[in-house]
Amino acid sequence: MTWLKTGLALLAFAVFSFQLISYGVAEQPYDPYAEQPLKNPAQENQAQDLMHTLRCLVCQGQSIADSNAAMAADMRAIVRHDIEKGWSPEQVRRWFIDRYGDWVSYKPTWSKRSWPLWILPLVILSGGIFLITRLFKREEKP
């Protein structure tokens, strides 16, 4: 009989906990800028182009233009707000990079930390060309 009381108490606790959790999870207010295009077509084109170059922080493999995540919707709203205020796409990109790091942008930038990633392929390519020319170089006869 005690195991029945314990089981019922655990069941009641689980149901009560689930109700508290579901009650505490409220949807964020909808921002119309997340999905609604800007009235100015030139600004909307700038915003769309920028959205395709920013990475969704939740999905990580999608741009914010392609992602359905709530975070991507918030990021789209920020892009549209800032473009409408007159910011250039590069200023908006810089704002996101300053807050989330270089990883948020699909367009890599030259920096003190990333220069080896830009130079190393050139060094490897040059070394490969040098080795191939040395291997196939004809021996000159005296």
Rank of each mutant, 00 (worst) to 15 (best):
M1G: 15
M1I: 07
T2V: 14
W3L: 06
W3C: 02
K5Y: 15
T6Y: 11
G7A: 10
A9E: 07
L10H: 04
F13T: 11
A14C: 12
V15M: 03
F16A: 13
Q19L: 05
L20F: 05
S22P: 00
S22L: 01
S22H: 04
S22T: 08
Y23W: 15
Y23G: 13
G24Y: 13
G24R: 09
P29A: 04
D31F: 08
P32S: 01
A34E: 09
E35H: 01
P37F: 10
K39D: 15
N40P: 04
N40F: 08
P41Y: 15
P41L: 05
A42G: 03
E44W: 08
Q46G: 00
Q46I: 00
D49A: 08
D49P: 00
D49T: 12
M51P: 08
H52Y: 08
H52G: 12
L54R: 06
L57P: 11
Q60H: 08
Q60I: 05
Q60S: 14
G61S: 12
I64T: 06
A65F: 10
D66F: 00
N68L: 14
N68W: 01
N68T: 03
A69T: 14
A70M: 03
A70K: 03
M71C: 05
A72G: 12
A72S: 15
A73V: 01
A73H: 08
M75T: 04
R76H: 10
I78P: 00
V79T: 04
V79L: 13
R80T: 03
R80M: 07
R80N: 09
D82V: 04
E84R: 00
E84I: 01
G86L: 01
W87P: 00
P89E: 05
P89K: 10
E90T: 10
E90L: 07
R94G: 03
W95S: 04
R99I: 07
R99P: 03
G101H: 06
G101W: 04
D102C: 00
D102G: 05
W103N: 03
W103K: 11
V104D: 05
V104K: 02
S105V: 02
Y106A: 15
Y106I: 02
P108A: 15
P108V: 09
S111A: 13
S114Y: 07
W115T: 09
P116G: 06
L117P: 02
W118M: 14
I119W: 06
P121K: 03
P121E: 06
I124C: 11
G127M: 11
T133V: 15
T133K: 02
L135P: 00
K137Q: 09
R138T: 09
R138E: 11
E140F: 05
